[in-house]
């Protein structure tokens, strides 16, 4: 029985369900070296990422389709993500799971990525700055054999600065 399992979906957690981030403009435009590092790390060497002639359909070379999902970097006025690394139990991940969203304050230590649902429209191109809008679509708890598990469902919309849509994402993050 699960009477003793704590309810982590407190009023404070419930209050952030539906929270929407202000539009988050990437700190810098998509850059050729970022595209290179991305496609090399994925080991996806399709010419559309580096050969203008092969990328004619796209109007020139493009970033890999999933690139915008990782395009938001630390801003200069943001705390150093390594500042808490001296804490041996710190996992290195901000509990504000997206820039501009509030933290999900749940006393569960392990964070896992549960998966994504993507709808893809257009590649980002060098020189474009990516705008991200995020929303906590749902936060809920399930009680498994190993204890409580909290699911955080995040909807993300990625566009160019001029409002052309790139992709939509629904990401489920898991705390346990």
């Amino acid at each position: 029985m699960s009477e003793m399992v704590p309810d982590y979906i407190t009023p404070a957690v419930r209050a952030v369900i539906g929270a929407v981030s202000p539009p988050q403009l990437a700190t810098h435009p998509v850059e050729p070296s970022e595209i290179r590092r991305f496609h090399q790390a994925v080991m996806d060497h399709a010419p559309r990422y580096w050969d203008e002639a092969a990328a004619a359909r796209y109007g020139g070379v493009v970033a890999p389709m999933g690139f915008p999902v990782h395009a938001h970097r630390r801003a200069e006025d943001q705390e150093d993500p390594l500042a808490a690394m001296d804490r041996p139990d710190f996992d290195g991940v901000d509990r504000a799971l997206r820039p501009g969203l509030p933290e999900v304050v749940v006393p569960l230590k392990r964070l896992m990525n549960g998966g994504y649902e993507y709808e893809l429209f257009r590649h980002a191109r060098p020189g474009e700055r990516i705008v991200l809008r995020s929303r906590y679509a749902d936060i809920y708890q399930r009680n498994g054999r190993t204890g409580p598990i909290v699911f955080v469902v995040i909807e993300d919309s990625y566009e160019t600065e001029t409002g052309e849509r790139l992709l939509l994402s629904v990401n489920t993050m898991i705390l346990r």
């Binding site: 810098h28 435009p29 200069e76």
Partner: peptide, 23 residues
């Protein structure tokens, strides 16, 4: 090689150099 804003920012941030001329 092209001098890129993202690369400049990344180098400045990892050295804790917050001089605004790098941003």
């Amino acid at each position: 090689t092209l001098v890129e804003l993202g690369a400049v920012r990344r180098m400045a941030l990892c050295m804790d150099d917050f001089d605004p001329i790098h941003f």
